[in-house]
Design a protein around this nucleic acid. Sequence first.
DNA 1: AGCACGCCGACT
DNA 2: GTCGGCGTGCTC
Length: 654
Amino acid sequence: MALFAMVALDLPLKQSFTYTIEPAMQDKVAVGHRVVVPFGKREMTGYVIDLMDAFSSPYELKAIKRVIDASPLYGKQLLDLAAWMSRYYLCSLGEALSMMIPGGRREISIPALEVEEDLSFAKIEQLSDEQDAAIKAILKRDKPMYYLYGVTGSGKSEVFLRCAEAAIAEGKAVIYLVPEITLTHQLAQQVTSRFANKVAILHSALTPSQRLKEWKRIISGEVQLAIGARSAVFAPFENLGLIILDEEHENSYKSGNTPRYHARQVAQRRCQQEGATLVMGSATPSLEAYSLMQDGSQVGALHLTKRVAGGSMPKVEVVNLAFEKSLVSSALKQGIKETLDKQKQVILFLNRRGFSYFFHCNSCGYELHCPNCSVALTYHKKSEQMVCHYCGYRTAPMRVCPECRSVDVQYSGFGTEMVEMEIRTLFPKARVERLDTDSAKEKGHVQKTLSDFRQGSIDILLGTQMVAKGLNFPKVELVGIVLADSGMNIPDFRSQERTFSLLVQVSGRAGRYNDQGKVIIQTFHPDNPAIQYALAGNVEGFYNEELAVRKDTGFPPYSRLINLVLRGRNQKKVQEETEKLEALLNSAAVHAKAEVLTSGECPLEMIASNYRYHILISAKDGSSAHHLVATVLASYTPVSAVYLEVDLDPLQLL
DNA sequence: AGCACGCCGACT
DNA sequence: GTCGGCGTGCTC
């Protein structure tokens, strides 16, 4: 029967607020409830984080208006987790709490692809030796984390599901995390059929109220397994035994808005806090995960090397575009023709348009890279300079290619529209359809295009990465990667890793149903390590080389980055505020092991008429970078109309 | 993040 | 003379 409640609000404020509880309400308010409170001139939803019998304040307290939930929405575990998130991601407690619950805040969810997969997911009676060994190792639980590291089709899902069954049999709960697009009907059905009605499916297509209903089913103990994308990591189980994180390398596990949490980090923390096991899996781990596996003290690496259902890997061919006149090389042209003649289908990947302001030579494919960071330089119109956004290196732009002396240079990526036109001209009789983020905005278009393609009324599908993930089309024999380099041009130290991952994932897809599968990779850089290692199928080789590069350039996993983004309508104010914050960081950094790498305009200097500046902080070890930023931000609030966003372990600096 | 209060420019 | 710009500060 407490008289006062401490309430956290979904605002970027460091404090929480205390309210009185009217006598009639006192038996209805508990920690973990949502409440409606008066706040200034408005009403807000708040989260009760503490109850007190006595509270003295210099001002008059207001009373809680009403209580939303009949029973607490947050248990002890989630409240602890939110407190950790607030400390770790440097956001307010209220922001962390509202991020956890479905519909707590508007989350921009991608319209779900409800594509039927042809994967015959029938329960496999006979496990391979590798699968068997992996399951045994995980169930032993002598490590806090395990990593199932194996090619597409090596039977990872079966291992995941068996471990889930084992955990549930012990009376523990399981969270199964998948990337946004992978949560297809098929996987949901598969899981449902296996675990009957013990499953909550947190599908992005659900409305907030439907999600909340599933959430409450979890709280009530009705279900033992929750499957869903990123935010399902907050599923409110109190007896968690296992978290599965499939396709660990996927960037969609990182939230795009404050708090910019990474589901892998949160899962790690939750497992540690609640004594649960974390099992991750991918054919192409993130470099962070790979280096943890090599270290071996935290993560048990479990290799799955063989394809369970057989099926050979496709033939991979690399075409050097430097010797070609068009973006559709003669090898690709020939390949498409042969495939169409056989009444089979073609997928062409037009890697996302990429970043628009990088230097590119159209003759030899030369690109300007930072000598310190080996990251692509970006062109800045205002200062007429090429800039590295990691270390601040600057150099003059050039009109002539330094490599081949050609004057055919430009400061933008290839027009992907060009490819579509050319394909239509070359194959006038083929039915060509394009699928990308632009066309996906029309409702139902994605689904219709994919089902048309599946039914065979489309011959050539042009698509971005959204087609690469999780989809299998039996009649596809040729997969063409039109320009493998376009991912490498992005001014980002992770671009090699992404390119490699895409190439391996795509190759894994192509040969799944027949032995005729073929992949054509077009590139200006046939010697590029990502391409060479992918071609050779040498995953370890790539990782070891890339790790050496990261060590050399001082990037993660050999350092920790924190990006502070300031934005606002008034450019002068944003700039001044950036300089002020940088000065604070620099003076605090004198005694710290962390440092400000660079500061200035963001690569994308304006979004939605907001000017954007950033400060990039780095340190060899994670805690000193975090400590520096946490210390400075504890006593710093930007002037109003300037907004600060903390991006811990940024995936890209745009 | 909102929302109000407050102090300087062009308008019925 | 007022209407309204956004700069500054507060919200239990």
